[in-house]
Simulated scan of single mutants.
Amino acid sequence: MALNDAATLVIGSGNYLTAPTGTVIPDDLLSPLSPWEAVGHTSLDEILSITSEGGEATTIGSLQNKSLRTKYSARTETLAFTLQQFDVPGLKLYYGSNAPVLADGTVGVPTDPIPTTCSFLAVFVDGENHFAIYAPKAEIYRSDDLSFGDTESLAGLPLGVKPMPLGSNQWSYAITPLGETPDEEPTDPGTGA
């Protein structure tokens, strides 16, 4: 692999968006059109983290070779960010898509919450470069308990995004590469072609 200075990333700004499940990645990542909608203000300090579960290795052997093959269990990943907008759409992302808006305008916290299922897009901007994470289907729900720590910073709703394969896709989310060389033809992350 050659050195590629154009493939480095320093995030200057970004945005998180949702759309109905199956919405394709927009052609213009910097100005996505409807039905893509921004989720709102998010944390400047904790931009994004990706954690995974599963993927454990099991060694399978034969009588002649105790380490003949390795098999890996399925892996699921969660993208986490902190939403800092306590409006009705933000509260429903955190408390569940079935959180009712009550007659007095308050949001009820359901006893059996249902995650929001949608397409998800995160776009990060680094000067002339932009980097995106796209999931045609994902579940969004709280990723941690709510805690108000001080009076000096914005409070936040910690959200987790679990990308899932859509239809016959063999992938759950796609990432746009940075610094492609001219002889590489990018594939469409919406179709994998």
Score class of each variant (00 low, 15 high):
K92S: 01
E77V: 14
D150M: 00
G127Q: 06
F81W: 08
G61N: 10
T23K: 00
H130R: 12
P100E: 04
V125L: 02
I47N: 03
P35S: 08
D144L: 09
D27E: 14
W36R: 05
A122R: 11
E185A: 13
K71V: 15
P115N: 08
F148G: 06
S49F: 07
T187V: 14
S34H: 07
G105E: 08
G22Q: 08
A193M: 08
D112Y: 07
A103V: 11
T21M: 07
L83V: 09
T191R: 07
P165M: 10
T58R: 14
G149R: 04
L79A: 09
K66D: 14
H130F: 14
E185Q: 12
N4R: 15
L29W: 02
R75N: 02
E128I: 15
S97C: 00
S119E: 08
L30C: 01
P189L: 11
D126G: 03
A193L: 12
P165C: 07
T76A: 11
P136K: 10
F86N: 04
S43T: 09
R75V: 15
Y134Q: 07
I133A: 06
D87N: 15
W36Q: 05
Y72R: 15
Q85S: 11
I60T: 10
F81C: 11
Q85W: 09
V10F: 08
W171N: 01
N15C: 13
K137H: 02
P35W: 07
Y134D: 06
S49M: 01
L91Y: 05
G179F: 12
W171A: 04
A38W: 07
L91D: 04
G12P: 05
A138I: 11
V123G: 04
A2N: 09
D183Y: 03
G156W: 06
A138E: 09
D27H: 12
P100L: 02
P32I: 06
D87C: 02
V10H: 11
H130D: 14
E184M: 13
E128C: 04
S52F: 03
E37K: 15
I60F: 09
A7Y: 02
L102A: 09
P113M: 04
D188M: 12
R142Q: 13
L29Q: 05
I133H: 02
G40M: 10
Y141R: 06
P165S: 01
G156E: 09
I140E: 04
G160A: 10
T23E: 03
A6K: 13
I50W: 00
N169H: 13
L33S: 15
P100Q: 08
T116Y: 02
A193S: 13
E180Y: 05
G96K: 04
M164C: 03
